[in-house]
Design a protein around this nucleic acid. Structure first.
Lengths: 236, 236
DNA sequence: GATAATAATTGTCAATAATACAATTAATCA
DNA sequence: TGATTAATTGTATTATTGACAATTATTATC
């Protein structure tokens, strides 16, 4: 006899929720949506959705991200499966929190309007549904952890960026002031960025040279340990 | 009208599979069981089980670990949710791989016999069912990553251990030869270990002093970056 | 009881990386 | 032309890492 199903087991809903980070040049932000259905309709929420029968959780997260932002090939990473029995009062739902980093300039505002999506600075987040606050906290921590050793923050920047912009990003992520000289030395020593001939002229009178990410080296060095932030926890 | 369930959504089975590491003094090992039910009955497998209606995935993993080893308060960490639609041919099942580290001397052999469990050195693993090979590979990588910065490998050792034992463990995990002098300097400088008055006398004529983990400092420093292995990827 | 054998313990020096700190430069505006 | 603003660049000090070998404690052997 061939067994077709596991009997006497509990089936449940599996969802993914996306913690979507963006950087506006000054502050790290999170993209939240206004929930369009019950329960908790009208409250702020992470963008999420259910895992369907023909996709794995990573695919589901990518699909949902595309739904909201119009973007494909986004940096996406599984964070943690949240599954307290009553986290969603409607029905038992386990949700895999995924964190993603996007270039805030590229996403399609049009689409995100349909979801009443808004960017919130991390320090001014509204109250969110269910255990989404916990998910966000974990994602922040993970980002700080990851960015200390891997050049993942470049995912948040446009194709062309300046060193002061990059530094602002690091300073905002770590809530710290970083020495300009030491920072640029460290970044340049990674060999990850290529200096451009043109300058960005809005921020200052002198203007700052643009840089581009060397995508070849980025791929190659992503998993190496760059020690971009020597002691992330010691900072304040 | 109050909505009681999410309609038109696909419900599925959620499982956890445990990658259980142990250290026998020489080699890092994995605890596998002989699968007791169809499909793939009789083949080697990670210890796993379904997440029940009244527990979250972490609880499920702890429960399953206790089932097999008799141990509570084990180091456990979610790794990744494996969810390709046909990974289990019987029925759609998403499985959260969890990795755990236990003191190989403490687990209860009695209980594990019921599951026909056996310890396998990482380099001599048998073929395993489904995507368990992939889970194991990811767990190995995660362990190497984590242990490079956090003193997590102590979870694998008995209460009393010697520096040469500790070094063997690191050498096996990183498949590398580490300089004794530099290693002990680094370990002692963390302040995590307390020298005992007695010696272990089996391994050598001179005998090696026992050390114990300073659990207070271990708790406090676990999340700090200790740089125990300066450049884990550069090793060979 | 002296000697050989085994593995643990300990120290130094050179190279590298991290940190602290300030003067110069390029462009704009008054 | 001079003042202002922010970008760019350099050096000295300290801490950490990495390479390398001699000494010590004990047991086994002659």
């Amino acid at each position: 006899m061939h067994i077709k199903r596991y009997t006497h087991q509990n089936r449940l809903l599996l969802a993914v929720d996306c913690i979507i980070f963006g950087f506006d040049g000054t502050h790290l932000k999170l993209l939240l949506i206004k929930r369009g259905f019950e329960p908790q309709k009208g409250r702020w929420s992470l963008m999420g959705g259910f895992v369907t029968h023909d996709e794995n959780p990573d695919h589901a997260a990518a699909r949902i991200l595309k739904q909201l932002t119009g973007l494909s090939d986004i940096y996406l990473e599984q964070l943690y499966a949240f599954g307290d029995p009553y986290r969603d009062p409607t029905e038992r739902t386990v949700s895999i929190a995924c964190f993603s980093l996007i270039d805030i300039n590229k996403y399609e505002e049009q689409i995100s309007h349909e979801y009443s999506a808004e960017w919130f600075p991390l320090k001014k987040l509204p109250s969110v549904i269910f255990d989404h606050k916990e998910m966000i906290e974990m994602a922040k921590e993970k980002l700080r952890y990851k960015a200390a050793f891997h050049p993942v923050l470049f995912e948040l920047l446009p194709d062309k960026f300046t060193l002061p912009q990059l530094q602002s990003l690091y300073e905002d992520v770590y809530d710290a002031i970083i020495d300009k000289r030491n920072f640029s030395r460290k970044i340049l020593s990674t060999g990850l960025v290529i200096k451009q001939k043109d300058k960005e002229k809005n921020g200052s009178k002198k203007g700052a040279y643009y840089y581009k990410l060397d995508k070849r080296k980025y791929q190659a060095k992503f998993d190496a340990f760059l020690h971009l932030i020597p002691n992330p926890n010691g900072l304040k």
